[in-house]
């Protein structure tokens, strides 16, 4: 049971970071008006939230030891899935027009 929980940890962390950044973006844009870009502060907040989300993975990596065998190593693979997903799905905070 504990093992299963650890397996879910990485993707769940992605889900949390994804929701938080998406929610933050929605809230920031709800206060803006028109098609213009949000200000520098808002952009920094979004990028910061993204980087914090990535950083949150690092201590968890230290928590979960590597084990031999792909299936047995699933918690660590799960962390990689979460980390890659966080990098891949949220990198637009750095490049796209915000609102």
């Amino acid at each position: 049971m504990r093992w299963l929980g650890l397996v879910l940890l990485g993707p769940a962390l992605w889900a949390v970071v994804f929701s938080l950044v998406y929610g933050l973006h929605g809230t920031l844009c709800a206060t803006a008006s028109g098609p213009e870009d949000l200000g520098r502060a808002a952009r920094l907040a979004l990028v910061g939230a993204w980087l914090l989300g990535i950083a949150a993975f690092l201590p968890v990596f230290a928590l979960i030891p590597e084990r031999s065998g792909q299936a047995a190593n699933l918690p660590r693979i799960g962390l990689w899935i979460g980390l890659v997903a966080t990098l891949f799905t949220l990198f637009p905070v750095t490049v796209t027009t915000s609102c």
């Binding site: 028109g34 098609p35 213009e36 637009p92 796209t96």
Partner: peptide, 19 residues
């Protein structure tokens, strides 16, 4: 997939309404 996504975002940025 990364190449496809990049192309899509690049085109998307070019055709967005601007102020």
């Amino acid at each position: 997939l990364s190449a496809t996504l990049g192309a899509g975002l690049w085109v998307g940025e070019r055709i967005l309404p601007r102020d």
